[in-house]
């Protein structure tokens, strides 16, 4: 191989730079997590020390569990995220199939119309969305959030999925038609399984922003029964600003499920992002 590529000094410098940045990226998370397991005294005396037998304490977590309904918040976030993703994938794939498979008058225009929403953030329309949700009685229900996130995710989903569906072989679909399958069966049985990787990409793109959104839960569903985890921790931390144990534990509570999911799915997620979906 070329010498310039394998120079040990270069390798050393590269690892040095990456380790340095990795530390910057992980340090705040690490500090929050270790301190959430310590007594108040230890938090202030030695903030960077790991908890030991003397400084270990779960008092913060006890406060959090007593005061905030974090399981309900978690459940709400879960329902909203899963339902939105399901609707985005189902409706997005159906529309993408219609646009990529059939030729009909206005199909180009319709594709353009659906693509508008990729660049325009849905937040701009918040004032009227709230009006709409109030007049349909959906305000303060999880449905309001699910509908908004579905609308927000559809444009990119249709765009990505129709790119992929163009690559599905026509012979396969025509073979299905000759066998007398209906268009619906062809779509659900033949085409959908083939674009599964693209669906994973779309899901990954939408999952994080939906789970982490603060704006719409704050405006459309701020009641106790419909709070999402993001909004719940925001409100909780706001109330317990001076109780450092509780704040640190609440933060850890919000970090841990996401971190656990990330560790499980990080391969899928990174493959999704780097698969060249954004061209």
């Amino acid at each position: 191989m070329n010498k310039a590529r394998t120079n040990p000094l270069n390798t050393f410098a590269m690892h040095g730079a990456l380790i340095f940045y990795t530390l910057i990226a992980l340090f705040p998370v690490f500090v929050i997590l270790i301190n959430s397991f310590k007594t108040r005294k230890a938090i202030f005396k030695e903030p960077l020390a790991l908890p030991d037998t003397e400084s270990f304490s779960l008092i913060g977590y006890q406060t959090v569990l007593k005061q905030g309904d974090f399981f309900l918040y978690f459940q709400n976030s879960m329902i909203v995220t899963v339902a939105s993703l399901f609707l985005i994938l189902l409706f997005g794939a159906m529309a993408a199939y219609a646009l990529s498979e059939y030729r009909f008058r206005g199909s180009k225009l319709l594709g353009l119309y659906l693509a508008l929403g990729i660049m325009i953030p849905i937040r701009i329309g918040t004032v009227a969305i709230l009006d709409l949700m109030v007049s349909t009685g959906l305000v303060n229900t999880l449905w309001a959030l699910i509908l908004v996130y579905t609308a927000q995710g559809l444009p990119l989903a249709v765009f990505i999925l129709s790119e992929f569906m163009r690559q599905v072989s026509d012979d396969l679909k025509n073979a299905g038609r000759i066998d007398g399958l209906s268009e619906y069966t062809i779509f659900f049985r033949l085409v959908l399984p083939l674009v599964r990787p693209a669906m994973a990409t779309v899901a990954v793109f939408n999952m994080i922003p939906i789970w982490n959104d603060l704006w719409f839960p704050l405006i459309l569903a701020p009641t106790e029964a419909t709070k999402t985890l993001t909004l719940g921790s925001q409100v909780f931390i706001g109330q317990f600003v001076t109780d450092w144990n509780a704040v640190l534990s609440a933060l850890s509570f919000a970090i841990l499920p996401v971190l656990a999911l990330y560790v499980i799915f990080s391969r899928q997620l990174i493959r999704g992002i780097t698969s060249g979906a954004v061209k």
């Binding site: 159906m94 529309a95 319709l110 659906l114 559809l154």
Partner: peptide, 14 residues
């Protein structure tokens, strides 16, 4: 489904 939701919840409010 896609066109209706997109139009009703995104374009119309916009």
């Amino acid at each position: 489904p896609a066109v209706v939701i997109y139009t009703a919840v995104m374009i119309f409010p916009l």
